[in-house]
């Protein structure tokens, strides 16, 4: 299932945009380069199955070669689904009172999630980058407390029309990014390749929990003061989601941003939400662009796709 194929299903699920305010507890500082050069770039790409990363990998290799600092954040929930199926684990889907359907991450699902994201996809992607000449270092959000914040174990669900609290979910909300760890790796010439899980803080322990990859990328971009490039499988955000001719090229004022939000539907809603969080967090600009075009990252940075700032 490509990201595009799942658009309709996602659209059905996402009736209600939720709370957008994210306050990062850590001091946010922009990376100041001695040469007064460009800010780093955070690139969000899909997992191996969602969006073919090869074009992005070569393009990122060229960017890194040119001296730009890059952090890669990847998702890959379709690969998680595949492995759950392979292991005969039936995912539990729950519906929130607001009508959003999502996968409930119980302990067993969480284990598979960590295996696939941090073990399979992160290793594959890090290897792809190394083959392209990039000195990539794979990290999960657990490593060094890279992506951390409160665990959410209880979710409100609608079960046959009855509102309930369902406990035991393994997800969390990123409130802290260990940007020192990323800075230090970037300073040493490495390219961090970051995946969820994040580190969830529970009452008396920390544990690996699920988090959204787009929001993770947004949190990293905010913390680093980096430009965020979110690659997807359409050219950008369309005013009419079914008409590529209506691509929104940029949104630089609150009013324009509102029109982008109104235009976003389905999985695009998530991208716009992530963009908003990145900007609020300190990112100078967010670009939503097509993963499958030539040089997808540099094209997006140069104005192809939708630019939000």
């Amino acid at each position: 299932m490509t990201e595009h194929d799942s658009q309709t299903r996602a659209r059905r699920r996402q009736h209600q945009p939720a709370d957008q305010s994210v306050v990062f507890a850590n001091a946010r500082r922009r990376r100041l380069r001695a040469d007064g050069g460009q800010p780093p770039v955070v690139v969000k790409i899909g997992g191996a199955n969602a969006v073919d990363p090869e074009g992005a990998v070569d393009d990122i290799a060229a960017l890194v070669e040119s001296g730009r600092e890059v952090v890669v954040v990847h998702g890959g929930s379709t690969a998680v689904d595949d492995t759950l199926e392979r292991m005969d684990i039936e995912p539990t889907y729950v519906e929130t009172p607001g009508g959003v359907t999502g996968r409930f991450t119980d302990a067993e699902t969480m284990e598979v999630f960590a295996m696939v994201m941090a073990g399979k996809l992160n290793t594959e992607l890090t290897t792809l980058f190394r083959n392209a000449g990039v000195d990539a270092v794979g990290l999960s959000g657990v490593d060094g407390g890279l992506l951390s914040g409160p665990r959410k174990s209880a979710v409100r669900v609608l079960d046959d029309g009855t509102k309930k609290i369902k406990r035991g979910d393994h997800s969390g909300k990123i409130t802290d990014v260990n940007s020192d760890l990323l800075d230090s790796l970037l300073d040493d010439g490495y390219t961090p390749v970051v995946s969820v899980p994040m580190l969830g803080e529970d009452d008396d322990e920390v544990l690996a929990v699920n988090a959204d990859a787009d929001r993770s990328a947004a949190a990293v971009a905010g913390a680093l003061g980096a430009e965020l490039v979110v690659l997807t499988d359409v050219a950008g955000i369309y005013a009419d989601p079914d008409d590529p001719e209506t691509l929104i090229e940029s949104a630089a004022t609150p009013k324009e941003l509102k029109s982008v939000k109104d235009a976003a539907e389905g999985f695009m809603t998530k991208k716009v939400m992530a963009a908003t969080e990145a900007l609020e967090g300190g990112a100078p600009a967010v670009h939503v662009g097509d993963a499958n075009r030539d040089a997808p990252v540099s094209s997006a940075l140069n104005g192809a796709g939708t630019k939000i700032e």
Binding site: R13, Q14, Q16, P17, A18, D19, S77, T96, P97, G98, V100, G102, R103, T105, K152, A154, V155, R156, I165, S171, K173, N210, A211, D212, T269, K270, M273
Partner: peptide, 23 residues
């Protein structure tokens, strides 16, 4: 109020949970 036991029934204040926009 959240039902935290049924026999005998017991209630506790339901936690405030923000609805999220999904994984």
């Amino acid at each position: 109020l959240e039902v935290i036991a049924v026999d005998p029934p017991e209630l506790d204040t339901a936690p405030e949970l923000e609805e999220d926009w999904g994984e």
